[in-house]
Design a protein around this nucleic acid. Structure first.
Lengths: 203, 203
DNA sequence: GTCTATAGCCAGATAGAC
DNA sequence: GTCTATCTGGCTATAGAC
């Protein structure tokens, strides 16, 4: 009985905290706002998570844990480079359409350079680029790919997939698009991005 | 005499405010910290700029005014698309190496969605994509360019140039590079990015 | 476990002497 | 114009009743 209440309250706090932290960041978020969002008393936040920082850590880790593994589709899968790029772009964009604030939140908090964010990440068995590096080197050597460093290719894949979500307010202004039109553009990018990259690297 | 002191003090406040706001954002910045950075008394900030918000607006506008005009090299120059991409990538990356916190600051504050940021920007004769759209359409029609929407090409150019600066903490971890190695990668991108894009769009 | 009330602190802003 | 001192409000966090 106690256990059940603990679980549901704790979960609703986490859910509310996620909403607020993702929209406003650590510095902009208010404990009161999170409590209101969860429909419970502010002191409950401290009862369950002890401090704003610990609550934030929980949210950040959960957010990070959903994004980091997706990189493995590029870095550690066994498929061809083309298939990786097609698969990742489609899956990643589909996922982020459903969670549009995630990428900006992660990047922003990593840029704030708190020791703990970087600590948490280091410990969290970060995906390594090692295997991908070998694969690219090999394909460049045998002439299947234009000469390109794996590092640049990886940065480019990330950039083309992630950037539109991080820069959407700016892009909407320059492109002079409505929200609906912008959504359509993003939808198109599920295939557009992979096509663009593959054209860039194929011989 | 008074005039000179006004100018130098006001300038040193603005400079300090730029440093602090760019590193910490509106929410994370403290007026005391800005005063310390400028080496003057906190009440001077209010004497010259009246409030934190007005000081922030001044900083944001100055930052935005240095970045926005650079988009014109892509959007409104008279050169060929290839030359635009080469020129912009080289110039933009060179500029941001010297001001690495600028892009993240602008994107972050636009994402906070304060009315005033969006208002300020709307009034600031934002560069339009109109001319670039015509140019791309024309080149696609006459077969000089692979079929691509101007919107996607523009997003891609922005993404490939800006993203590495916004995501540097993440990229450094995944790529497992030192600061020096990462700087070298960025340096390479002055030409690498344009090459990549041109390969992607040429027939 | 959940609430109310409040402690304690720190930030932005102002008053007023010089 | 520049300083010191201080007000005021809002925020995190906790004490304590239920």
């Amino acid at each position: 009985m106690n256990k059940r209440k603990t679980n549901t309250t704790e979960a609703s706090i986490l859910k509310a905290a996620k909403t607020i932290f993702l929209h406003k960041g650590m510095d902009g978020a208010r404990m009161q706002e999170i409590a209101d969002e969860a429909g419970i008393n502010k002191s409950m936040l401290h009862y369950y998570f002890r401090s704003k920082e610990l609550l934030f850590k929980a949210v950040f880790m959960e957010a990070f844990s959903t994004l980091a593994p997706q990189l493995n589709e590029i870095l550690n899968a066994d498929s061809s480079i083309c298939d990786k790029i097609k698969g990742f772009s489609h899956n990643y964009i589909t996922f982020v359409i459903a969670h549009p604030y995630l990428p900006n939140f992660i990047l922003q908090e990593m840029n704030r350079n708190n020791e703990f964010v970087n600590d948490l990440i280091s410990k969290n068995h970060f995906p390594s680029i090692k295997k991908f590096k070998l694969q690219v080197k090999e394909k460049v050597a045998d002439g299947t790919l234009r000469p390109i460093k794996a590092e640049h290719l990886f940065i480019n894949i990330m950039a083309l997939n992630i950037f539109p979500f991080v820069a959407s307010p700016l892009l909407k202004k320059v492109l002079d698009t409505s929200d609906t039109q912008f959504k359509n553009l993003i939808e198109e990018r599920k295939t557009e991005v992979a096509e663009f990259i593959i054209n860039a690297i194929k011989v």
